[in-house]
Design a protein around this nucleic acid. Structure first.
Length: 469
RNA sequence: GGCGGGGUAGCCAAGUGGUAAGGCAGGAGUCUGCAAAACUCCUAUGCGUCGGUUCAAUUCCGACCCCCGCCUCCA
């Protein structure tokens, strides 16, 4: 089955074909964070979905090159610098590090390149220069440089916006601008007092880059003038990505990106989670509540990326329980497999079918809900056979090997059998002895002690087993 | 005003022109000294409403209702 993505550009499920004539290399650019504060889990929904996309492409055998920018100069950053007095580099360095920590907690694969905007001012200036030279950009009386959307006929292709129909947003004071047209956007923002010592010299005077230009400059630097995939949250469709297309294609006269993928919002209480509304959780907030990164990853990833995801604690609790079911299954398989390795066995009949179903689900625009359904169906069916001791070690090993491959996509991690520490194991032995002696009062007392230490004891037909709570 | 996404069981959610995957929660059972844990089974004559097309619609068409979002801070 072909891999298909819903392409915002075509508004269709398009079969994925890489630009690379060899069909091997795939370039993916994902819009990264603006580092003036901790990212919230709404932000991480996007990064998690992008991680899934990237991982699945790799699973499908593509050589993926993933670029994610760090926006480290921008209005909100400058405002924060002004308010707190913390130097820009220190502020952005701090939150960049925090962001990368959060990414690790969610098991997001590190991008191959994580370029910072402030390290690419020359590339941006070159791009702006090219646009000026082509006459599609102009310097306004306010000294800022703007892109003229009137000069780019294809403007509005992503959002299907008719420039004539645009009307100013509520937060825009039209009279503040000296642009030729309302839809024109800044490539270079002229320095003003509020910027303090933040600024770079340019052929158009001191200033700083506009928001969109960094993504065009950096994506093209690392991936080429045309590349395969560009992802982000749906709020970036317009104007950010629309403007990226305009400035990039106007400059290169080549198609910029083949497939645009956008994920829907994370909601909380039915409303978009955002810094603006104040209704957000950072990853740290949730980790502090005792949820693990993988549980949050599951919660963020388990729903199809193009559907709005209403974040609830009930939902994360559900994610935790779902993972526990999966873990339980894998640990059981490992016990059955013992020391048998999958490599020494021929693949049993069930596994290729499982793989085919898993892939068929993800091939269809990363339908993870369906893929997880496939997995849980398989778990139920195999559990029945495990209960009857009908799964030979070789098959268990083969299933584990297959699952390991699935996990390169899911990123939940394979559960490790947990060795109980000596004192816990000793207590378990004592309890077993008490039970043999029919001293159930003592046995139950030890059970409570173990629980207090964070271990549950599970009496199975094969004897007691210790499990981490 | 323009443009878009949704409304499927208590909650989350997949999906299809042929009669509703999966997860969580809940109920029952197996196991057990009792439990716990685990596992199994059960749980929507129904897919926002009203019409239409069809042998057959949740799935196609039309109208309507409701929710969410974008239209230059935004993942």
């Amino acid at each position: 089955m072909p891999l298909r993505f819903f392409n915002t550009l075509s508004r269709n499920l398009d079969e994925f074909k890489p630009l690379d004539p060899a069909g091997k290399r795939v370039g993916i650019y994902t819009c990264g964070p603006t580092v003036y504060d901790f990212a919230h889990i709404g932000n991480f929904r996007a990064f998690t979905f992008e991680d899934l996309a990237r991982r699945y492409l790799a699973y499908r055998g593509y050589d993926v090159v993933h670029v994610m920018n760090i926006t480290d100069v921008e209005d909100k950053i400058i405002r924060t610098v002004r308010q707190t007095g913390e130097p820009l580099q220190q502020l952005t360095g701090r939150f960049t590090a925090a962001f990368l920590d959060d990414c690790r907690a969610l098991n997001l694969l590190p991008p191959h390149y994580v370029p910072r905007a402030t390290d690419h001012i020359p590339e941006m200036l070159a791009l702006i220069g090219a646009l000026m030279k082509k006459g599609v950009a102009y310097q306004a009386p306010d000294k800022s440089v703007y892109f003229s959307i009137a000069k780019f006929a294809r403007y509005g292709q992503l959002k299907k916006i008719d420039a004539g129909q645009m009307r100013p947003g509520e937060r825009v004071k039209l009279d503040e601008y000296e642009k030729e047209s309302l839809g024109d956007f800044a490539l270079w923002k002229a320095w003003d007092e509020a910027d303090g010592d933040i600024g770079w010299d340019s052929p158009w005077g001191r200033g700083r880059p506009g928001w969109h230009i960094e993504c065009s400059a950096m994506s093209m630097k690392y991936l080429g003038e045309s590349f395969d995939l560009h992802c982000g949250g749906e709020d970036l469709v317009f104007p950010h990505h629309e403007d990226e297309i305009a400035q990039s294609e106007a400059a290169t006269e080549k198609p910029f990106v083949r497939y645009w993928l956008h994920c829907a919002y994370l909601l909380v209480n039915g409303q978009k989670m955002s810094k603006r509304s104040g209704n957000f959780f950072t990853l740290r907030d949730l980790l502090a509540k005792g949820y693990t990164g993988r549980e949050l990853r599951y919660a963020l990833i388990a729903e199809h990326y193009r559907r709005q995801l209403n974040f609830t604690f009930e939902g994360v609790d559900g994610a935790r329980a779902s993972l526990a079911r999966m873990d339980e299954f894998l640990v059981k398989l490992r016990e059955v497999a013992g020391s048998v390795s999958a490599a020494t066995t021929t693949k049993p009949a069930g596994t290729p079918a499982l793989q085919a179903e898993f892939e068929a689900a993800l091939d269809e625009d990363l339908n993870i809900s369906s893929a997880l359904g496939v997995l849980f169906n398989f778990i139920r069916d195999t559990n029945k056979r495990l209960a009857e001791n009908a799964v030979p070690p070789a098959e268990a090993a083969a299933i584990l090997a297959t699952w390991q491959r699935f996990d390169t996509v899911l990123g939940f991690g394979m559960p490790q059998a947990q060795e109980a520490p000596a004192d816990v194991a000793a207590l378990a032995d004592q309890r077993q002895a008490a039970r043999k002696a029919k001293d159930f009062k003592r046995a139950d007392q030890i059970r409570d002690e173990l629980k207090a230490k964070g271990w549950v004891i599970e009496d199975t037909p094969k004897g007691p087993k210790l499990k981490r709570l």
